[in-house]
């Protein structure tokens, strides 16, 4: 009994330490966002500013066209998430249910591409898009991200766990492949699909490097790129940068809190026979 309590105490202590470590940067971000410029860099660091500078948020928002950035980010996130869901559903169905020549090899090759580091592809992708004339357009921000091998893999595993007889039964009932996919498979795969959509939305919302490279005009920038407005030749305005960052991550945190039970269910269930 005592040993159990002891080991439980140990586990909780570890979890609390882990949790604190995870939350520390966020606390620091919020703290900095409320400081006066001269408090940001002082040693020893100050966790709680003397005066809470809420006006930092207003200044940050108005310093750059953040409304435009937000619009761009929303367009990119929504379009690439919907697009990825469509490609993922279709590809996962094909790789799990349709017997076509070379299917398994094609799938192995796709998985293989996951091992190529994304940075390697930056330049070739940029050149391709430049030749298509898409640089500094929504196309450049969206189209390269319409498919994800990882999502296809995740959903394929989920589809494989759905018994084959279900598709036989549907076939006998007079249900076409597409109809079966749409009215049986997709509803069943809801947890996996929500996971995929959420991971995509977060990734896309936070994407920095790619939008930075393919956009040049103010009008096409997304929120993370917009944060660079606070870094100038004269230095970085950390308090404003942090205020803007806080505003940017807020929607994702809220989204995650609402949907987190699906994420965990989706990741845990993929690959396990349901």
């Amino acid at each position: 009994m005592q040993r159990e309590a002891l080991s439980k105490g140990f586990v909780y202590t570890l979890l609390i330490i882990g949790g604190l470590l995870m939350i520390l940067p966020f606390v620091w971000m919020i703290s900095t966002s409320l400081k006066a410029p001269n408090e940001v860099m002082i040693m020893p660091p100050k966790w709680i500013p003397d005066i809470f500078h809420w006006d930092n948020y207003v200044t940050a928002w108005t310093m750059a066209p953040f409304a435009r950035y937000t619009l761009n980010s929303l367009v990119v996130v929504i379009a690439s998430t919907i697009g990825e869901l469509i490609t993922t559903i279709l590809a996962a169905y094909a790789f799990s249910r349709i017997n076509f020549y070379g299917r398994d090899i094609a799938f192995a090759v796709l998985l293989g591409t996951m091992m190529v580091p994304g940075e390697v592809l930056l330049i070739p992708n940029f050149v391709t898009l430049a030749n298509l004339g898409w640089i500094d357009q929504y196309e450049a921000l969206i189209i390269p991200w319409l498919a994800s091998i990882f999502s296809i893999f995740l959903l394929r595993q989920f589809f494989l766990s759905i018994p084959k007889e279900l598709s036989f039964a549907a076939k006998i009932d007079g249900c076409s492949d597409f109809r079966f996919l749409w009215s049986i498979m997709v509803p069943l795969a809801k947890p996996a699909l929500i996971t995929i959509a959420l991971l995509k939305a977060i990734g896309s919302w936070n994407a920095f490097l790619w939008p930075l490279i393919v956009t040049s005009s103010e009008n096409m920038r997304t929120l993370p790129v917009g944060l660079t407005s606070f870094s100038t030749d004269a230095g970085t305005m950390y308090e404003l940068l942090m205020a803007a960052s806080t505003m940017i991550i807020l929607p994702m945190i809220i989204l995650y809190i609402i949907l987190q039970k699906y994420i965990i269910e989706g990741v845990a269930r993929a690959g396990i026979k349901g």
């Binding site: 018994p163 007889e165 279900l166 036989f168 039964a169 076939k171 006998i172 009932d173 007079g174 249900c175």
Partner: peptide, 15 residues
């Protein structure tokens, strides 16, 4: 095709 054969089928795992 199965849907035009005028059959009904029951599977081992019910499906």
């Amino acid at each position: 095709e199965p849907e035009h054969r005028e059959i009904g089928m029951v599977f081992q795992n019910y499906a």
